[in-house]
């Protein structure tokens, strides 16, 4: 039996603020299969991050339900890794210490196996030789690699990524996207990838979910008509240009309305 890795059913989130209730998300229905790469595309403030935080168990939905592997999410799970918009590394800790941090923080100690495991992940993420460097000595792209390595440390089945490359310059951003695809293909994971970049969503994901402005709803859920492996030239075909144009149209139409 195949089971959805993540599923939202009529999920919504209303925050209490000083100026009254604010509905960030409403009636979200969405299923993500195991090892599927899904990009969520939407204007800023449409509740994309809320979607991610509900999946992570950091906030509870105020309506509907969020399930992971068939079980309602009531608290954070061990099989979910999170990559944030900023790498948010510990500035006093070396690359290696940052990557083993989940073990240190969760269990209070770090074993030899943890260190070996961390070094292995660091190498996979293209950071071999930088284990002892401090985050401040690394470029933005390398810092985010450390952020990804940290999220991979507990070997999660689900990877939640909240606009992970949006703080990087355009060239580094593209390179990091392909780096992520390489990691994902070498070790398949369910990825929920939040972004506001159409090309980024299309080049990375199996499926693109388009969200409306606040309160965020799913307005389109489209399979990306592109085979793998993909590279820089993948987006040049007229078919892909049309697909991206369609997505742009969905985002703009929603903005005007």
């Amino acid at each position: 039996m195949t089971q959805d890795a993540i599923s939202f059913s009529e999920a919504g989130q209303t925050f209490r603020t000083d100026s009254g209730p604010l509905t960030a998300l409403s009636g979200v229905d969405l299923s993500i299969a195991r090892h599927e790469f899904v990009a969520v595309l939407g204007p800023s403030g449409c509740g994309k991050s809320t979607l991610l935080r509900m999946t992570a168990g950091l906030i509870k939905p105020t309506e509907g339900m969020v399930s992971v592997f068939g079980l309602p999410v009531t608290e954070p799970r061990d099989d979910i890794g999170i990559v944030f918009q900023q790498a948010t590394l510990l500035p006093w800790a070396s690359v290696e210490d940052n990557v083993v941090f989940p073990a240190k923080h969760k269990r209070g100690r770090v074993s030899r196996q943890d260190r070996d495991h961390a070094r292995q992940i660091i190498a996979t993420c293209g950071l071999a030789g930088f284990e002892k460097r401090l985050p401040g000595e690394l470029s933005g792209g390398m810092q985010q690699r450390v952020g990804i390595a940290r999220a991979l440390f507990l070997n999660p089945d689900i990877l939640l990524m909240d606009e992970p490359f949006s703080a990087l310059d355009a060239l580094t951003r593209d390179a990091m996207g392909f780096e992520l695809l390489r990691l994902w293909q070498a070790s398949p994971k369910t990825v929920l990838f939040i972004t506001h970049s159409i090309p980024e969503a299309v080049i990375l994901a199996d499926r693109v979910v388009v969200m409306s402005e606040r309160p965020g709803r799913v307005i389109a859920n489209l399979k990306v008509p592109l085979s793998r492996p993909r590279d820089e030239s993948s987006l040049r075909s007229t078919e892909m240009q049309e697909f991206m144009g369609h997505l742009r149209g969905l985002l703009i139409k929603d903005k005007v309305a």
């Binding site: 168990g57 950091l58 918009q85 948010t88 923080h105």
Partner: peptide, 25 residues
């Protein structure tokens, strides 16, 4: 940074470790 507090919560670490390993440094 609030993200690090979220990281701590997502690992379900005890509060005193959040203070000693993240907030205090």
């Amino acid at each position: 940074p609030p993200e690090l507090i979220e990281l701590s919560r997502s690992l379900r670490a005890p509060v005193w470790r959040e203070i000693s390993q993240i907030r205090l440094p």
